[in-house]
Design a binder for these strands. Sequence first.
RNA 1: GUGGGUGUAGCUCAGUGGUAGAGCUCCGGAUUGUGGUUCCGGUUGUCGAGGGUUCAAAUCCCUUCAUCCACCCCA
Length: 421
Amino acid sequence: MPKVVPLVRGMRDLRSDEVNAIGFVESAFSDVLSSYGYEYIRLPVIEHTALFSRGLGEATDAVSKEMFSIIEESDALSLRPEGTASCARAVIDGNLYRGNKPKLWYAGSMFRRERPQRGRYREFYQVGAEAFGYEGPDIDAEFIRLVQDVWERLKIDHAITLEINTLGSAESRHAYRNALVEYLRPHKEALDEDSQRRLDLNPLRILDSKNQRTQEILQDAPLMEDFLDEHSLNHFKEFRNLLERHDIHGQVNSRLVRGLDYYTHAVFEWNTDLLGAQKQVGGGGRYDGLCELLGGNPCPGVGFAIGIDRVALLLQQLEIETPKAQPDAYILALSDDEQAFADKVSQQLRSETKLAVRSHLGGGKVKARMQMADRSGAEYALIIGAQEAACNHVAIKWLRAEREQITVPLAELSATLLNSD
RNA sequence: GUGGGUGUAGCUCAGUGGUAGAGCUCCGGAUUGUGGUUCCGGUUGUCGAGGGUUCAAAUCCCUUCAUCCACCCCA
């Protein structure tokens, strides 16, 4: 016997309740995004590595140590660790912002080579949206309202908190960065190891450190808000006013900095306390410099991404019902003589209704057929014996409810089942 | 990537050097036009993998893989 080829680390087979919960979350986003008039875009899973190293920044963990990369005929390619860079590339490639302000959304697998944990896998699922060409904070606020709509629709809004912050314009961010480095430099030896490394690479990220000693040092550090120019201040103020108007209450967290380099102005994160260390379910912000960075014409952009599988976990944690994997009906002939009639009934039911109708195949004794019906999880079995077939009738036996079995003419079957709840 | 926990039947787990177990599941029968429920009988197996110590290893040691928790990071 050859050895079984194992699952690749950090990859999962998703089935049953798990895959349903993920599908449920994804379709909630899909419905809401469509209702806001966003356009669906399917992006490739593989891009040139350069797209990510330029777009997200060499210094980010995602690019520097978490990408799955291959060399294909001397081209360095990588599985996408996130969707924004691809989306911006697609907009630039297709000249989509020429005379237009696209609002796009996407969903799919992302890949990061991290140590797997519950809620953190090497292949995970995101849904995200990006808008290009909008300078004002109205679009930022629309995103947050839109996502809030989804939380409410999924009935998990009580379990999710929103944090917001501003990083200001590129100029104010730059000025603040210099001031922060200047302040931290003398304390360098006292910082934790990661923060010491970041001092040169990505100093804003030090603000995010969970190290207690580092946070003590940061107590007296200069504040971002003191470095915001007037434009940045107004942008953030209006953003908050709009959220207020949308009846959304985000917590301003001045230590909130996003991991990826391209963010400017408004940044935001959705968190939950119910998933252990994997508290972040989504995040986003504005990246006005990204298109130019990728070689396109300057174009402001904003976007967000949600971890679909983390939201699905949250639904399970909260014991919120997601659609069932089970069929509605299991149709079986009592013997092979009635199979032709049973097939006819199945086809008619499928064409007349949206019910999930599973046909019994493979013959067997009556008991075996009934067992299969039960195990399918179907609400009811549709049973066809010689008597039923002879007079064009079908027996309906409810498998989960305390309810008498009935026999109806084929012509009335669909209507009977649709009105049976 | 770092530190720690776990890995035994399909599932949940017990078993700490001496014949691999329990509950649930599963299979057969009671029951030849009805599943589940009840009763009777039966099967679960590379003890994650590889190596070592020993007369003897699920048990001790080493290596490795997977998974979980925390860190890191992010969704």
